[in-house]
């Protein structure tokens, strides 16, 4: 079975601030770890490989330093990887990102199964996976909780819905996005680290893709644009109370009564 996993490098922390006057993002340090949700996707792929044989390929779009997370996936047991990196991919929104990755997937082969994490911790959109599936014209199932069976030409999954669990049989090739907790991600092993340290991480740019049209990538290929960024508003209509535990609890009881919660 040929399995592809899409992964992303995200900031090590989401502790960022905006300078209120200039609207500039104060963020020192750079992208630095694999999106935690992607670890579950990589683990799922390796689990399937162990059971059914096959090959696991990880791919990512990002700056050159994102090669680090491909190396990390090698240490978990991925067989090959690729990084799609080009100044022309810069400023990509959901659509342009999904299109670039779908082109990247076509470049690398014809996978039976594509696995994505539930979402990223920096974008929080959870929408790139379904858009990749659309561009590849294959079915997708989001919120996969469990893989029940892998058959010759289909895969049986548990999909997590708010009040139900749906058991679905999806024909291959397909794309799934997996919930955290589907499997416990393994730690990169030292043995594999040594074994994979010289393994190549190929870089591809726009000219390596089938579709060379610059207008479909990066900022130009992004229908949505960020007009401005600003810090979240604080509530201005507020009261601050100080005092002893006795005084504070007394006031709160009165207030809750006044607001008709008691």
């Amino acid at each position: 079975m040929d399995i592809f996993v899409c992964i992303k490098q995200v900031p090590g922390t989401t502790e960022v601030e905006v300078d209120e006057k200039t609207g500039v993002l104060k963020r020192d340090g750079i992208d630095s770890k694999m999106n935690p949700y992607d670890l579950y996707a990589v683990e799922t792929a390796i689990k399937i490989k162990e059971e059914k044989k096959g090959e696991v390929t990880v791919l990512s779009m990002g700056p050159p330093q994102a090669a680090e997370i491909i190396g990390e996936a090698y240490m978990m047991g991925a067989d090959r990887g690729a990084l799609f990196t080009d100044m022309k991919f810069a400023g990509a929104d959901v659509l342009a990102t999904a299109y670039t990755l779908s082109q990247g997937i076509k470049k690398l082969g014809n996978p039976d199964l594509i696995i994505c994490g539930k979402m990223t911790t920096d974008g929080d959109t959870a929408q790139v996976g379904p858009e990749i599936a659309e561009f590849l014209d294959i079915p997708h199932v989001a919120n996969v909780k469990k893989i029940l069976e892998i058959k010759e030409d289909s895969i049986v999954l548990e999909m997590d819905m708010p009040h139900t669990i749906e058991i679905v049989d999806v024909k291959l090739p397909c794309l799934i996005t997996v919930e955290k907790g589907i499997y416990q991600p393994r730690l990169p092993s030292f043995k594999r680290k040594i074994a994979t340290k010289d393994r190549e991480i190929p870089f591809y740019s726009l000219k390596d893709l089938d579709d060379h049209d610059e207008m479909k990538y990066g900022l130009d290929g992004s229908p949505t644009q960020v007009k401005r960024i600003f810090p979240p508003e604080a509530n201005t209509d507020q009261e601050i109370w100080k005092g002893s535990g006795e005084e504070l609890s007394e006031r709160l009881v009165d207030k809750l009564g006044e607001l008709k919660f008691l």
Binding site: V16, L25, T121, V226, K227, R228, F230, P231, P232
Partner: peptide, 8 residues
């Protein structure tokens, strides 16, 4: 960015 900033 995890709610640390708002984007328009």
């Amino acid at each position: 960015f995890g709610g640390n900033i708002m984007a328009h």
